[in-house]
Lab assay of single mutants.
Amino acid sequence: GKMTGIVKWFNADKGFGFITPDDGSKDVFVHFSAIQNDGYKSLDEGQKVSFTIESGAKGPAAGNVTSL
């Protein structure tokens, strides 16, 4: 299901970062391709987001990332 969290950091040049889930679980990798907006796909440190957990090739990653 949907989770919420805070963006820990995001490197716009490399197109990835990490989200710290509100439930205290392990930080989740986020790739820019998972960001659900029409414009420039980037996130800001400290931004609140909702997301799902998808299993990627390198382990769990955030999917369906939407800013709240």
Score class of each variant (00 low, 15 high):
Gly1Leu: 08
Gly1Val: 08
Gly1Ala: 10
Gly1Met: 10
Gly1Ile: 09
Lys2Gln: 14
Lys2Cys: 06
Lys2Phe: 15
Lys2Val: 15
Met3Arg: 08
Met3His: 11
Met3Val: 12
Met3Ala: 09
Met3Thr: 10
Met3Asp: 04
Met3Phe: 13
Thr4Arg: 05
Thr4Lys: 08
Thr4Leu: 11
Gly5Gln: 00
Ile6Tyr: 13
Ile6Gln: 09
Ile6Phe: 12
Ile6Lys: 12
Ile6His: 11
Ile6Arg: 13
Ile6Met: 11
Val7Trp: 02
Val7Pro: 00
Val7Tyr: 01
Val7Met: 03
Val7Asn: 00
Val7Arg: 00
Val7Gln: 00
Lys8Pro: 01
Lys8Val: 06
Lys8Thr: 07
Lys8Leu: 07
Trp9Met: 05
Trp9Arg: 04
Trp9Gln: 03
Trp9Gly: 02
Phe10Leu: 02
Asn11Met: 06
Asn11Cys: 07
Asn11Trp: 11
Asn11Val: 05
Asn11Glu: 04
Asn11Ile: 06
Asp13Lys: 15
Asp13Asn: 13
Asp13Ser: 14
Asp13Val: 14
Asp13Pro: 09
Lys14Leu: 12
Lys14Met: 11
Lys14Ala: 11
Lys14Ile: 10
Lys14Gln: 10
Lys14Cys: 05
Lys14Asn: 05
Gly15Phe: 03
Gly15Asn: 03
Gly15Gln: 04
Gly15Asp: 01
Gly15Trp: 03
Phe16Thr: 03
Phe16Lys: 02
Phe16Tyr: 15
Gly17Tyr: 01
Gly17Ala: 01
Gly17Asp: 00
Gly17Thr: 01
Gly17Arg: 00
Gly17Phe: 01
Phe18Gln: 03
Phe18Ser: 03
Phe18Ile: 05
Phe18Pro: 00
Phe18His: 03
Phe18Arg: 03
Phe18Met: 07
Ile19Pro: 00
Ile19Lys: 00
Ile19Gln: 00
Thr20Asn: 06
Thr20Gly: 05
Thr20Ala: 13
Thr20Met: 14
Pro21Thr: 06
Pro21Phe: 04
Pro21Cys: 05
Asp22His: 09
Asp22Ala: 08
Asp22Ser: 10
Asp22Phe: 09
Asp23His: 08
Asp23Pro: 03
Asp23Thr: 08
Asp23Ile: 06
Asp23Lys: 06
Gly24Pro: 03
Gly24Phe: 08
Gly24Ala: 08
Gly24Leu: 07
Gly24His: 09
Gly24Ser: 07
Ser25Pro: 05
Ser25Gly: 13
Ser25Trp: 06
Ser25Asn: 10
Lys26Phe: 10
Lys26Met: 12
Lys26Ala: 14
Asp27Thr: 06
Asp27Trp: 04
Asp27Arg: 05
Asp27Ala: 07
Asp27Tyr: 04
Val28Arg: 02
Val28Tyr: 05
Val28Asp: 00
Val28Asn: 02
Val28Ile: 13
Val28Pro: 01
Val28Gly: 00
Phe29Asp: 01
Phe29Lys: 02
Phe29Cys: 02
Phe29Ser: 02
Phe29Met: 03
Phe29Leu: 04
Phe29Trp: 08
Val30His: 00
Val30Pro: 00
Val30Cys: 05
Val30Leu: 08
Val30Thr: 03
Val30Phe: 14
Val30Ile: 08
His31Asn: 03
His31Trp: 04
His31Ile: 04
His31Gln: 04
His31Asp: 03
His31Ser: 05
Phe32Leu: 06
Phe32Gln: 09
Phe32Pro: 02
Phe32Ile: 11
Phe32Asp: 03
Ser33Thr: 12
Ser33Phe: 05
Ser33His: 08
Ser33Ile: 05
Ser33Tyr: 05
Ala34Gln: 10
Ala34Lys: 09
Ala34His: 06
Ala34Thr: 07
Ala34Leu: 03
Ile35Gln: 03
Ile35Leu: 10
Ile35Tyr: 05
Ile35Glu: 02
Gln36Arg: 06
Gln36Ala: 14
Gln36Ser: 12
Asn37His: 14
Asn37Trp: 11
Asn37Glu: 12
Asn37Cys: 07
Asp38His: 12
Gly39Trp: 06
Gly39Met: 10
Tyr40Leu: 11
Tyr40Gly: 10
Tyr40Thr: 11
Tyr40Phe: 11
Tyr40Arg: 12
Tyr40His: 13
Lys41Gln: 10
Lys41Asp: 07
Lys41Glu: 06
Lys41Pro: 11
Lys41Arg: 13
Ser42Pro: 06
Ser42Thr: 15
Ser42Asp: 08
Ser42His: 15
Ser42Gln: 12
Leu43Phe: 06
Leu43Gln: 01
Leu43Ser: 01
Leu43Ala: 02
Leu43Asp: 01
Asp44Ser: 15
Asp44Arg: 13
Asp44Ile: 14
Asp44Phe: 15
Asp44Thr: 15
Glu45Gly: 12
Glu45Lys: 15
Glu45Thr: 15
Glu45Tyr: 14
Glu45Leu: 13
Glu45Arg: 15
Glu45Met: 15
Glu45Asp: 10
Glu45Phe: 12
Glu45Gln: 14
Gly46Ala: 05
Gly46Thr: 03
Gly46Ile: 02
Gly46Trp: 05
Gln47Asn: 08
Gln47Pro: 01
Gln47Ser: 11
Lys48Thr: 09
Lys48Glu: 07
Lys48Arg: 15
Lys48Trp: 10
Val49Trp: 01
Val49Gly: 00
Val49Phe: 02
Val49Cys: 04
Val49Ser: 01
Ser50Met: 12
Ser50Gln: 11
Ser50Leu: 10
Ser50Tyr: 09
Ser50Arg: 04
Phe51Val: 01
Phe51Gly: 00
Phe51Ser: 00
Phe51Cys: 02
Phe51Arg: 00
Phe51Ile: 02
Thr52Ile: 11
Thr52Trp: 08
Thr52Ser: 09
Thr52Ala: 05
Thr52Cys: 05
Thr52Asn: 09
Ile53Asp: 02
Ile53Ala: 05
Ile53Met: 12
Ile53Val: 11
Ile53Gly: 03
Ile53Cys: 04
Glu54Phe: 11
Glu54Trp: 10
Glu54Asp: 12
Ser55Gly: 12
Ser55His: 12
Ser55Phe: 11
Gly56Trp: 09
Gly56Asn: 13
Ala57Gln: 14
Ala57Met: 14
Ala57His: 15
Ala57Tyr: 12
Ala57Asn: 13
Ala57Glu: 12
Lys58His: 14
Lys58Ile: 10
Lys58Tyr: 15
Gly59Asp: 04
Gly59Gln: 06
Gly59Arg: 10
Gly59Ala: 06
Gly59Leu: 06
Gly59Trp: 07
Gly59Ile: 05
Gly59Asn: 07
Gly59Met: 06
Gly59Val: 04
Pro60Ala: 10
Pro60Val: 13
Ala61Lys: 14
Ala61Asp: 04
Ala61Phe: 15
Ala61Tyr: 15
Ala61Asn: 11
Ala62Arg: 01
Ala62Gln: 01
Ala62Thr: 02
Ala62Val: 03
Gly63Arg: 06
Gly63Glu: 11
Gly63Gln: 13
Gly63Trp: 11
Asn64Asp: 11
Asn64Pro: 02
Asn64Ala: 10
Asn64His: 10
Asn64Tyr: 10
Asn64Trp: 09
Val65Ala: 02
Val65Phe: 01
Val65Thr: 02
Val65Glu: 01
Val65Tyr: 00
Val65Leu: 05
Thr66Asn: 10
Thr66Trp: 07
Thr66Gln: 14
Thr66His: 10
Thr66Ser: 11
Thr66Arg: 08
Ser67Asp: 11
Ser67Trp: 11
Ser67Thr: 14
Leu68Ala: 09
Leu68His: 09
Leu68Phe: 07
Leu68Met: 12
Leu68Ile: 14
Leu68Thr: 10
